[in-house]
Design a binder for these strands. Structure first.
Length: 440
DNA sequence: CATGATGATTCCGT
DNA sequence: ACGGAATCATCATG
């Protein structure tokens, strides 16, 4: 079958009549024929070419062609078209030129490519297409998603999931450093290590996914670029357009990335909330921590209100947080006050301990803070009448050190710490008395 | 499982 | 914002 199987009038035929003031029948004839020819090329492309991209290319070519014609951009083509006998056109496909060379169908493309007018025509196509695409593109410029992306980025940054500069591959390295990332509320040993482990797991997944996406993006971009370059030999594709296409691809991939970031954020948030929940599931402090706290408490029994510095010091030494120290002291004070008898034993133990460990400290710690209560404090408002056992213990204690009795301190406690907030600044200096050697 | 110990939270006053 | 008091929830022990 030599005749084109496809009839000439296609659905998207040029809707406009030819441009010129006198749309004579000859011009429209030519147009018709051109459409027919491109339809032929279309068939040809379908038959020959693998994949439908080139098929689309031909479609586009046809579209542009009609645009171009109706715009009357290039007069010399019209000239050429007019000067050539119509039948020859439809039959041979030498539509670029009036010459009556007749090509067999396989040669048509080659002839087209080799034609002397081809470069000029091609550049015109490019130009027109550039304008068309630009006008389409101009409408749908992307705007707002940038904002959300920034928010997500900031959050991931704050959570320590991604680094500002380069991504820290080693999760262990991050976990190892004592510096708490972002705003972790509690660095309570075990809970926190668990939290960190999970966080680093999330981080790992995030980074590997990110890398995958980036790689896929790169691959797809090069693929498309190559494809377009390849096609640019057949249809008008400017480098600018390729660039734009790359931009579109990147945009798509970055939207995928945003989803990834979003779900990462969600994961971190749930992890975080779980950590906060876990806080309610309390865990007893380590022996070390209770020792340190008790030592401070009993050595400052007259005024068991550690300063901020002292709290920090205690927290550091006990491996707990400052707020935990505050909680502990709050609980301790109230419970001690409520049931002093119960704590006598503990008191003796710790006072003895501090006395032995650092005599100098003791003197400073408990006494210095209450100048109003000298050694005669045993005669305070609430002498330890009920706790005989404690008294003996205290006596033994007294033999250990020449300092005033603990009983005085206890009575002070009973009298109430309440009113006497931090009497002297010297008290603040006390942390040094705690720090030195409680454990050593 | 009952009970006490204990860390955390909440409410309230200062 | 801090501390006291009450309370909750969990741990530890027998």
């Amino acid at each position: 079958m030599e005749d084109p199987q496809r009839p000439a009038p296609p659905p998207p035929a040029p809707r406009r009549p030819p441009p010129g003031p006198s749309p004579d029948s000859h011009t429209s004839d030519v147009l018709q024929q051109i459409m027919a020819i491109t339809d032929q090329s279309l068939d040809e492309a379908q038959a020959r070419v693998v994949g439908r991209t080139q098929f689309l290319a031909v479609l586009e070519l046809r579209f542009l062609f009609s645009c171009w014609l109706s715009a009357g951009v290039c007069s010399h083509l019209q000239e050429a078209a007019c000067s050539s006998p119509p039948p020859a056109l439809s039959q041979s496909g030498s539509w670029l030129q009036g010459q009556q060379v007749t090509f067999s169908r396989p040669l048509r493309k080659h002839a087209l490519n080799c034609h002397r007018m081809k470069p000029a025509l091609f550049s015109v196509f490019c130009e027109i297409k550039e304008k068309t695409v630009l006008s389409i593109r101009g409408i749908q410029e992307e705007g707002p998603p940038d904002d959300q992306l920034m928010r997500l980025d900031n959050m991931l940054l704050a959570e320590g999931v991604c680094r500002p500069g380069k991504q820290g591959r080693g999760a262990a390295a991050a976990a190892a450093s004592t510096a708490t990332p972002g705003g972790c509320p509690n660095d309570n040993g075990l809970e926190h290590s668990d939290y960190r482990a999970k966080l680093s797991q999330i981080r790992q997944i995030y980074h590997s996914e990110l890398e995958k996406y980036e790689q896929a993006c790169r691959e797809f971009t090069t693929h498309v670029t190559n494809l377009l370059r390849e096609q640019s030999r057949i249809r008008p594709i400017s480098p600018k357009e390729i660039e734009r296409m790359v931009g579109v691809i990147h945009g798509k991939f970055s939207s995928i990335q945003m989803q990834l970031k979003q779900s990462t954020c969600e994961a971190v948030m749930t992890l975080r909330s779980r950590l906060l929940d876990a806080r309610r599931k309390r865990q007893n402090f380590s022996k070390q921590a209770t020792e340190v706290l008790n030592e401070y408490f009993y050595s400052h029994l007259s005024n068991p209100y550690p300063s901020e510095e002292a709290k920090e010091e205690l927290a550091r030494k006990g491996g707990i947080t400052v707020s935990q120290v505050s909680n502990w002291f709050g609980n301790k004070r109230i419970r001690y006050k409520k049931n002093m008898g119960k704590f006598q034993e503990e008191a003796t133990i710790y006072t003895a301990k501090t006395a032995v460990d650092s005599p100098k400290v003791r003197g400073l710690g408990s006494q210095a803070s209450c100048p109003s209560m000298p050694s005669s404090s045993a005669s305070g408002p609430f002498p330890l009448t009920s706790s005989g056992g404690a008294l003996t213990a205290l006596q033994t204690l007294a033999s250990l050190r020449p300092a005033p009795g603990v009983g005085g301190l206890l009575s002070q406690a009973r009298g109430g710490w309440r009113g006497k907030r931090r009497s002297t600044a010297s008290l603040v200096g006390d942390p040094s008395s705690v720090t030195p050697d409680a454990s050593n």
